[in-house]
Design a protein around this nucleic acid. Structure first.
Lengths: 203, 203
DNA sequence: ACTGAAATTGCAGTTACTGCACTAAGACAG
DNA sequence: CTGTCTTAGTGCAGTAACTGCAATTTCAGT
């Protein structure tokens, strides 16, 4: 079998990732150069860029967060009229992408929430999740379809809702008091604020 | 008078800006180097970075969009219960920041909406508007304050609402069909979609 | 004309990143 | 076991954005 090749490749990738995360946790994003990571990982700079397209990719990972399949099924199966509540429940089960080691994933999350530049990048990555979300929302909203609504209108609504949800997530991350524990987000507060706010908006 | 100094400075800045925008409109963002802009503007590279901190700043401008003061007063004076509608009206009057020449501002907007990288950056700049928006929303939401609501809760709601509005703006820009005319956004559609969507969310 | 501050410049250096040609080492056929 | 072929890794030269520093040019005001 030719597995030891890709295995070797993966080993090097992990060596790069782990040293990158460790160094940035120690010294901060700007103070860590690619060369430092390379030296720590025992590889050449050229090899670094053979494994990761950019410095940030090595630090935050190449794949963005994914939605949990189980949570999606639960969301689509829910009979509740509280679509927003179900939706926040769904978002709360966002899984960090692509890492097997939970401790390493935790370190990465801690790092991302500490460096504003990385946090912004991670939020940009959410747009991939958002596209996924639109498809899910179309299915759920299809249930509430009005008499003269077209499929395009439903899709527009799902699209809009995905943007609103993105806003809620942003609020959950950076909103309110500047106390951001690196752990899971506080969606209960988000939900409470929304419950107060929404009735005030209606025409 | 010592005005000709700062005047000269401003002249150079405009020469840089205009050549930057022109060149990027002609050749695209990635194909235009700082050196090309410098040569076109007849200055040295070092002078370029004395005027603008980054290449993108020279292209999209250093100041982000601003809210129109008149629209703000109208928003705060409105008696309508349709807060969301008033809010979209307010957002529709966002003014592009910092440029005197309307033709130049139009060119810039055309450019920004054409290059995805620049569009993303422009959206990031909206967060400055968002902070402003929160203060305005606090004033408006203070009217709808419930019996046991604290000032902090009102602020949280304003914060959340500003994030939701940001989502609506994003929807207006990139949402739905990929037909983005570089002109003003279509907030009527946004409003229509919202009217259909919101009743479906309530618990 | 002199002066001092502001505008501009040259230059060397850092950092991220790319293209290309090359070597090293394991997998596999015979 | 040998030759071959694939693939990970390397070296090197180059580009592009950006910075610090020191020098120099340009004027407004005396």
């Amino acid at each position: 079998m030719d597995r030891s090749r890709s295995a070797r490749h993966a080993v090097t990738s992990r060596a790069i990732e782990q040293n990158a995360v460790r160094l940035v946790l120690e010294h901060g994003f700007d103070s860590v150069t690619v060369d430092m990571i390379c030296e720590a990982a025992g590889i050449s700079q050229r090899t670094f860029f053979n494994h990761f397209p950019t410095k940030v990719d090595a630090i935050v990972g190449t794949v963005g967060p994914r939605v949990d399949e189980v949570a999606v099924r639960r969301f689509l199966a829910s009979d509740s009229t509280d679509v927003l509540g179900d939706l926040l429940e769904l978002v709360a089960h966002l899984a960090p992408g692509g890492s097997d080691d939970p401790a390493f994933a935790a370190a990465r999350w801690q790092l991302v929430s500490r460096e504003p530049a990385l946090l912004k990048l991670q939020m940009d990555r959410m747009i991939s999740v958002q596209r996924e979300m639109v498809e899910i929302l179309v299915l759920r909203l299809a249930r509430h379809v009005g008499p003269d609504e077209t499929a395009d209108e439903i899709r527009d609504q799902a699209d809009m809702l995905s943007h609103l949800v993105a806003g809620m997530v942003r609020f959950s991350i950076e909103g309110g008091r500047p106390d951001l524990p690196p752990g899971p987000l506080d969606f209960e507060r988000t939900r409470a604020v929304l419950r107060r706010l929404l009735p005030k908006l209606g025409g």
